[in-house]
Each structure stands twice: as structure tokens, then as C-alpha cells.
Design a binder for these strands. Sequence first.
DNA 1: AAGAATGTTACATG
DNA 2: ACATGTAACATTCT
Length: 300
Amino acid sequence: MPELPEVETVVRELRRPLKGARITGVRVRWAKTVLPLTPQRFRRLACGQTIHSITRRAKYIVLALDSGWRMLVHLRMTGQLYLTAAATPQDPHDRLVIALSGRRELRLHDPRKFGRVWLTPDGEQALAHLGPEPLSAQFTAPVLFNILQASSRRIKPLLLDQSVIAGLGNIYVDECLWQARIHPGAAARSVRRRQAGRLHRAIAGILQRAILRGGTSLGEGESNFLRPSRRRGGYNRALRAYQQQGRPCARCGTPIARLVLAQRGTHYCPRCQPLWPKQARQQEHPKNQVQLRRQENRPP
DNA sequence: AAGAATGTTACATG
DNA sequence: ACATGTAACATTCT
């Protein structure tokens, strides 16, 4: 679940309470969580270190420790971080427990066990494969346009590729493409300047609004995203495409459709997000719509 | 009760 | 080199 807005929410909520905390103990309850280290080695390296800062890079939580060491946390699908009193009963799905000064514990709760935590002396190498931060000043509309022009891939899988743009996931890519009125299966190269401009604005705007609402919590289950404060994110109320199949498009009323692209459920409006740009132009003239839709429905 | 699920990576195939 | 497809990870939710 956790994409850039959820990870940013985690970092913001943990920053104040974790800053300056000292690691006094480590319990690894699922050994693969700390691969490639062994639990013993992980514990020995982490114990005694002080947490100097917490930041985010893409979907990674970065804890700066002593002498340049970094602890990197990736929540993958169902990971949640929360801070609690050491006396709080253990949840069976807590995979890693980091005991801190002040009788507190930072816990990784992760039903599906995909979450990973690394300790590295630099932090640079582990994050080197990531593309630009979509909320940074360097990520401008022309930069995005150039990225799209340079690829012959379809746009949704391209936007999901963390080495191209770092931080988008399945929910927000569908939302951004809906907002920008671009078909998820469109060839990236075929997206023109105006559309790339809309997409750039959609990415910045949607990510920022999602952060303001504390991210997206989908269902009610325990594998759903919860903030460190154990509250839900509120952006699910703003979703316009993701898991909205069958419900009317907020722009035009056409039912949202679902297809599978790059093995991911993909949600879009078949009328607002046509595959061919020509139809997009015609769509802006309401008088053409009826005829256009008849043409679409004709067998090939 | 089958199918899908917020992420990533390795490997195979075209 | 590039693009796409599949499986794997492991469990829960609908």
C-alpha cells in the first residue's frame, strides 16, 4: 500500500518523537526482514546507535545513525511502522522490534512479510537506482516530457518504474493518469507536450493533497495502511479511478473501467482517457460525442 | 471461495 | 539493449 504519500506521512509523524532516540535493543521476529544480514549481525550493528534524523527517499524511510550509517525501511505491500510503549503487548504480525531510550519501541507490523530493513554504512549505494523525486524542483514539466519522449514503453508501467520516477505506485499512477486524461496503455512517446504538462501538474497536486490527508487507507483490514499514530489516511475519499470500476467517472459519468496492465489492476475512464489523442480532441466538443461513441463500438 | 491485493526483483522470451 | 511476461515472496481481504 504505501506509496510516496504514505511513506511521507510515516516520516512526518515519526520525526519529532524519534529524533535523538538511542537504540537499546533489537528483536528480529522474521529473519528475512533484515536480509542480507543475519538477525545477530543486524542487532549488533544497530544497538547503541542514535537516530539523528528521519527522512524519505522515494518509498524508503531513511534513519540517519552514527558516523554516516543509515537504516533504510521499505514497507512494501503491508508494512506499518508504529511507536509505542515497551509495555504494549506484542502483535503476532510485528516482524521487527527496535527498543529505544525512554522505554519505547519502534515496531514494524507486516502481515505479508514483504517489508525489508537494511543497515548500510553510506546509504548512497542502496538508493542509487532511484529516479527523480516527483515533488522536487528538478522534476519539471519539460523533464517529464523528455522522459516520456525517450521511452517506447506504455506510460503506466513507465511511471511505476522507480528508476524513472521515484515514489509513484499503483494507486497514484491511476489517479494521476485519470486527472491528466491519459490512457494508461498509451505509448509514452505518443504523449504530447500539453498532456505531459497536465500529467506533471496532476502528479504534484495529487501527491501533495494525499500527503495533507495522511495518505490512503483502503479497506478495514489489518493489512491496510495505518499511520504511526494508528489512524487511517483520508485520501481514499478523494479517489477518482483506483478501485472505482463500475462507478461513474467524476468528470463525464461514464463507468470507470478496469484492465490488467503489467500485472497490475488498472482503472481508467474509457471516455476521458481515450487511447488515441484524436478522440481526446473530439471529446471536447460535446456535439461530436454521440457519433464518436458509435464509431468506437463498431467491430474492427 | 476463487481472485485480487498498496511493491520489488529475478529470470525468461521476444 | 530494450520491452514484455511470469513467477516468487506470504498472507489477508473481498
